[in-house]
């Protein structure tokens, strides 16, 4: 379940955001989390689920180090 895609908020108009996915503009509900234009967000079924904090937090090298520390 749960296909979700990262996109960029272009503008915000009374709780509805226009989100860009590589040149595709889609309207998405912004009622689940505070967003502002320029934010990268995760969209599922027409709703913004979360703002993506710096994408480099998913850096594989860092995650690898964290796992090694745990082990």
């Amino acid at each position: 379940m749960c296909v979700a895609m990262p996109g960029k908020v272009i503008r915000l108009d009374s709780g509805v955001a226009e989100v860009d996915f590589s040149g595709n503009r889609v309207r998405a509900q912004a009622g689940l989390v505070a967003v502002k234009p320029g934010d990268y967000v995760l969209v599922h079924a027409g709703c913004i689920l979360q703002v993506i904090s710096k994408q480099d937090r998913d850096s594989l090298a860092d995650l690898f180090e964290e796992i090694e520390e745990l082990c």
Partner: peptide
């Protein structure tokens, strides 16, 4: 143990507003 390997969007407590 639970290891969060998707930290760009997943936090320990999640989206509380949702």
């Amino acid at each position: 143990v639970v290891k969060n390997l998707y930290p760009s969007v997943v936090t320990a407590r999640g989206n509380v507003q949702a």
